[in-house]
Design a protein around this nucleic acid. Sequence first.
DNA 1: GCGACAG
DNA 2: ATCTTGTCGC
Length: 328
Amino acid sequence: MSQEAQGPEEKGFAVKNAGEARALQRVLAGRIKIVPLGKKPRFVAGADAAFLDDQVLAVACLFTYPEMELIDIKTVVMKVTFPYIPGLLGFREGPAVVRAVRGLMQKPDLLFIDGQGVAHPAKMGIASHAGLLLDIPTIGCAKSRLVGDYAEPGRKRGQRSPLFHKGELAGTVLRTKDGVRPVFISPGHRIDFEGSVEMALSCGRGFRIPEPTRVADMETKRLKKAMEEKKRQRYTEAVCKKHCSYYRPEKSARKCGAYLFLSGVLTAGEIEGVGPAERAAFDQDQVIRGLACGRCQFLTTWCPYRTAGPSKGKPCGGYLVIERLLSR
DNA sequence: GCGACAG
DNA sequence: ATCTTGTCGC
Ligand SMILES: [Mg+2]
């Protein structure tokens, strides 16, 4: 069975509000090293995150370099513990991302992260933060600007222009594909400005986004889609298959009103705790009609209960579940 | 006080 | 990031 990573949170992200987060960034920033990459990397990785309800889904992808052959993928699912606040992205995605990278079969020699490195108000974007905690050379590869000023780079792949923030070089606005919007590259940790641009280009394979973060992003979405599908199956199981006498395995283009209402308010786990359908003692019909039947697409053609009347037919499974929940 | 503002 | 159908271009 799939698990949600729990236990002691990554120590380097332990804050409980924006103020503490900014204070921690100021402390950690002093440890960031902008130095040339030691030797040519053998393994590079990319990491990104997606969100589903109250969970963060992080993925780290490992590649050989310079072949850029994908050799490992690590997934981590955790509870979301911090909101998105510009400048504090690391505290939202960082914990899961760091765990994912740590889970790879081989520690990468270079890591790409979807977000800024030192091109940040405190020079501590998510790439710097994660790179420092992991002690891995890291590059921030963002799709848009957080801070800094720059001139539009030439339209050819490889053309670039410096990104300046408060009179200092903060990153590079790099054109990774002819005529396509540039990306914002900035060193995160243990690599320099020049090296981060060279690596971003050499890890590219014809797309705007370098392979490491591009593939990590795709995997993140694929995992999310699979989780949503599993969630739907579990819900259909808990409500329709278990309680509805009208249930049919075939997919229908129409949506059950009671199902829609329930899925918007309760989780499958909460509904699985509902016992076998058993009519409640008192009448909740008016309430349920407003909550569910009002938007039910099966109402006129399939619902004997609504169409012919309570004495003629049985209500659907979702109706029964709602009724049972309301009666307690 | 008003805009800007990674994902 | 997420929501959300179709549509325009290579
Ligand atoms: Mg992302």
